Simulated assay, not measured.
Amino acid sequence: MQNKKSKLKKSSPFEIILIIVLAILALITIYPFYNVVIVSLSNTQASATYSPYFYPHVFDLTGYKTIMQDPYFFKSLNTTVFVTVVGTAVNMFLSVTASYVLSKKRLLGRNFFLGMILFTMLFSGGMIPTYLVVKNFGLTNNVWAMILPCALNTYYLIIMKNYFTTFPISLEEAAKIDGANEFTILFRIYVPISAPFIATFSLFYAVERWNEWWNALLYINQKSLAPLQIYLRDVLVSFNNQLATQAQSMLGSQGKVHVQSIQMATIVIATVPILCVYPFLQKYFVKGAMVGSIKE
């Protein structure tokens, strides 16, 4: 405690002001999500009566009960979990294998392939041609339409390729002397060494797949196949009459349906699961973010 006080005394006025400014910015950043949580635990009438709203004056779980009783919520949750788990696995497998191959200067046509990859970062086929390709492959109204069209992120691929080029060639040569082939070198040497780096990009991919909604909006017409983000969009933009009926039946004739509480509860349910993944990957994320920043 004394060390903290002594450090604070030794801090310059600029550092103190900087700490205060950063603390204010942190509060400004955190408060919107905090407000969503407490409104979801209360109701619209209470949040309108007590302003500013810092804690739930009326504890009401009607929003969560309404969402949990909607069968389409669990269908959308299952779709999102499948797309996140399988999609992230496909993303990482293609990214790791492609970046490993492209990191080898002996690859025939390596510059051509890299040029084509860079070309896709600057130009795309457009929405309609992409839709026609997806339709011709029979992926419309299919969960794979949310996985295969975005199976590879070229920006992440280039970063991984640059990272693999930092590995000493002697490491690969020593493995080949022991009889290892390319697959053994990649999955038994490169991947274990790159665990923090791979975990970082796995988190990036997982967040993208969890928040997937654009491809679902374009290629998915069946409500039973819609992901969680489309379900959230429907609740926020056009409140479902079925949800209103369910909420009214739980509250009884004396109660009143609070649309905003149900909407905020949906946001919390759609956000918290992916937030729970971060603590397990935090130690790898910090190491992976520092890869390449320190030269030994």
Rank of each mutant, 00 (worst) to 15 (best):
Q2C: 11
K5G: 10
K7W: 05
K7A: 13
K9N: 10
S11Q: 14
E15C: 04
A23V: 05
A26R: 05
T29I: 11
Y31D: 09
F33T: 12
N35H: 14
V37D: 08
S42N: 08
T44L: 03
F54I: 12
F59E: 14
L61N: 09
D70Y: 05
D70H: 06
D70V: 03
F74Y: 05
K75G: 12
N78R: 11
N78V: 09
V81A: 03
N91E: 06
F93N: 04
S95L: 14
S99E: 04
K105I: 11
K105R: 13
L107Y: 13
R110T: 06
M121Y: 11
S124G: 15
S124P: 12
G126V: 06
G126P: 06
V133D: 05
V134Q: 01
L139C: 07
P149T: 04
T154R: 10
Y156D: 10
I158A: 05
M160L: 15
N162K: 14
F164Y: 07
T165F: 11
T166W: 01
I169T: 13
A174K: 04
N181L: 06
L186E: 02
F187Y: 05
P192G: 14
I193M: 15
F197R: 01
A206C: 11
V207N: 06
E208G: 08
R209K: 10
R209E: 03
Y219K: 01
N221C: 06
N221H: 11
K223A: 11
Q229V: 14
Q229R: 12
L232P: 04
S238H: 06
N240H: 07
Q246N: 14
A247G: 06
S253H: 13
V259L: 04
Q260V: 11
Q263A: 01
A265K: 03
T266P: 02
A270P: 00
T271H: 03
I274G: 02
V277I: 09
F280Y: 14
L281P: 05
Q282N: 15
G292S: 02
